[in-house]
């Protein structure tokens, strides 16, 4: 239990993922800045931002339901910490076999950060936050369908394995799924779903600073906002790793380039697209993406 707690709190759980996430978010900001012909921040900027938020005053709207308003950021952080611990462990710790069915558990836990944002936003009692929450939940509904269908692809290809560590081993023997046609299609769909899960452009309608002033996060300030930001940052580590584990033969410290590749893709998508309206996002995910996901499943059944 102490070992587990260590794993959860320090390595590779909370602290480690947070540090990696902060670095990743620095890369994100630096590349974005270079694309926009700016210099960009120094490497410790994300950390400084958190520290800055920590000394700010916390304001709570009078109309808020306080219990849930304070609890929501913690729920999101807790879920993402749990997920990243699970994913790191099956990848880097040969002792940890995970448990069977952990794919499904991770899938469910990955929706918790979004739920946390929605609950927090709607408990603030601000109409703009409600608007942001409504957009966020629609987005969740939209990307969840192709995400689930794509999640079935590795299960089919590995003949019904439900344990991440076994899926990694299967890929080690039979080649990674991404090399097959169905695998690459599912992987591409998953990248778009990941972008939406991270709430980055073009799927950031729920926060839309220029339009609804931060939307779901409008009433959050100080440390509570910092926790939400930290959750997003950690999610930026956990989600790409989950994808790599499922489709790309897993991950160790030598193959850090896989993560960098995904990160660059995220940053590129984010910088080359305008924000879409939420109904366009629903159309995109329930239309094209779902069709592609179904195609991937069909190909996977055929063994391609």
């Amino acid at each position: 239990m102490t070992r587990l707690l260590f794993n959860f709190l320090i390595f590779p759980g909370f602290l480690f993922t947070a540090i990696v996430g902060l670095i990743a978010s620095w890369i994100d900001r630096k590349v974005t800045a270079r694309i926009q012909w700016r210099v960009g921040p120094p490497w410790y900027q994300p950390l400084i931002d958190l520290v800055k938020l920590s000394i700010k005053e916390i304001t709570v709207p009078r109309s808020a339901s306080k219990g849930l308003f304070f609890l929501s950021p913690m729920i999101g952080l807790s879920a993402v910490t749990f997920v990243s611990t699970l994913i790191w462990l099956v990848n880097i710790d040969p002792v940890s076999k995970g448990f069977s069915g952990d794919i499904i558990v991770i899938m469910y836990l990955l929706t918790l950060p979004a739920i946390a944002i929605i609950l927090g936003a709607s408990s603030s009692g601000n109409p703009l936050a409600s608007l942001g929450a409504s957009r966020e939940i629609k987005l969740v509904m939209a990307y969840e369908l192709p995400f689930i269908i794509c999640l079935i692809v590795p299960v089919i290809k590995s003949h019904g394995l439900l344990r991440l560590s076994e899926i990694i081993n299967y890929q080690a023997v039979n080649g990674s799924f991404i090399a097959s046609l169905s695998g690459i299609i599912a992987f591409i769909v998953m990248i778009f779903c990941m972008q939406a899960k991270l709430g980055l452009v073009p799927f950031d309608a729920s926060e839309a600073e220029t339009e609804i002033m931060g939307g779901a996060l409008i009433e959050y300030s100080g440390m509570l906002l910092a926790i939400f930001k930290l959750t997003k940052t950690m999610l930026m580590v956990a989600l790409p790793l989950f994808l790599i584990t499922l489709f790309w033969q897993g991950f160790n410290f030598l193959s850090i380039w896989k993560y960098v590749v995904l990160l660059v893709i995220i940053v590129l998508i984010r910088n080359t697209n305008p924000r879409v309206r939420v109904d366009q996002a629903v159309r995109f995910f329930w239309g094209k993406m779902t069709l592609m996901a179904i195609l991937a499943v069909l190909l996977a059944i055929k063994g391609m």
């Binding site: 304001t59 009078r62 913690m74 952080l77 749990f82 601000n126 910092a226």
Partner: peptide, 26 residues
């Protein structure tokens, strides 16, 4: 639950004493 506790600890690391009630900002 431990994750929730982490969140709480982070919260108390910050400036948790100055909590101000305000109207909704739109």
């Amino acid at each position: 639950f431990a994750g929730l506790v982490i969140g709480l600890i982070i919260y108390f690391l910050g400036n948790f004493k100055s909590v101000r009630m305000s109207d909704s900002y739109i």
